[in-house]
Simulated scan of single mutants.
Amino acid sequence: MKKIVLTFISFVILTGCLQQQSSTLTTNSISLDTKVQPPSSFIPKTIKVVAIGDSLTEGIGDESNQGGYIGMLKEELEEEKRIKEVELTNFGVKGHKTSNLQKKLKEQKVISSLKEADFVIMTIGGNDLMKVVRGNLFSLDYEPFRLEQKNFEKNLKDIFTTIRKHNAKAEIVYIGLYNPFKHMLPELTEIDEIISEWNMSTQQMLQKDKHSIYVSVEDIFISESEEMLLSEDQFHPNSKGYSLIADRVLEKMKSESLFVDIR
């Protein structure tokens, strides 16, 4: 009888201990750390660049066949941490003036590219200016340049309006004019002043658009020591000249923090 009683008491005590242990175990919570996802800004992205304009954008004069400043810029951009890849579409055409670019922007393939662009990079206006230079080379006068400048400004404003019609947020990067006659015809100092006036009017136009920047390159080709930056035709940059333009564009894009809000 005593054995039975002792066995029963032991069973009750053991059962109570197990229940208490079980109760303790069920109340313990398990904490799992939630994995923090990196901000989207840290993930390299593919960007779409559309290049438009004249022979400089086409890359005429680049003996290295790297595609001129725009091809070199593409390589430099792809070295940036925020950029995984650059999808470049180049619509630059030798000889194009602002009037030609206006027509080019009406082509469906150009429109489609503009709609998808993150950046629109352009050189235009050099042929508008040179048309007047060639027509007044031996009787240089400011008046024909001032008249042509009005046409240039009107056409350029229409070009910017057209781009914005198809894409309101793309960053427009306009590369300014330079004087290719600096070393060939150094006595024509008036051209420097005329080019500065044209560039200034373009800068003022771009300042009205918060997604547009102006890149000055005229100083690159000003000093006599920089004569070797032009190609054999003494008009277009050579590979070294294009490389300096690409560096200047990238520097300006960085200073304006254009990579921060890449979509």
Rank of each mutant, 00 (worst) to 15 (best):
G68D: 01
R82Y: 09
E63S: 12
T26A: 06
S23I: 00
Y69T: 07
M72R: 15
T89Y: 04
S64A: 14
L77K: 09
G59V: 09
Q19H: 00
F42P: 05
L14Y: 05
F8P: 14
Y69I: 08
G67R: 13
K81S: 15
L73N: 08
G59P: 14
Q21F: 13
L77I: 11
R82V: 12
E79M: 11
E63G: 02
P44V: 12
V49W: 02
I13P: 09
K48G: 00
A51K: 04
S10D: 02
L77V: 05
K45I: 05
E87V: 03
S31N: 02
E75N: 13
L77N: 07
K74I: 10
E78Q: 14
F91P: 07
G92S: 03
E78V: 15
L77Y: 06
Q66P: 11
I52Y: 11
Q66V: 04
Q37E: 08
I52D: 06
K74S: 10
E63M: 04
I70W: 13
S40W: 07
I30M: 09
I52Q: 03
S40C: 07
M72F: 07
G68N: 06
L18R: 10
G68T: 08
F91D: 01
E58G: 01
N90C: 03
E80N: 12
L25S: 12
G67P: 14
L88M: 05
I47N: 04
I30H: 08
K45M: 01
T26H: 12
V36Q: 02
G16K: 12
S64P: 07
K45W: 02
V36I: 14
I60Q: 02
D54C: 01
E87I: 03
L88C: 02
E87H: 05
D54K: 00
E85A: 08
F11V: 13
I70D: 14
P38G: 01
K45E: 03
T15F: 09
T27A: 11
P44L: 08
Q19L: 10
S10E: 04
S64G: 06
V36R: 00
Q21S: 05
G61Y: 11
I30C: 04
S64T: 15
V50F: 14
Q21G: 14
K84H: 13
N65C: 07
T34D: 04
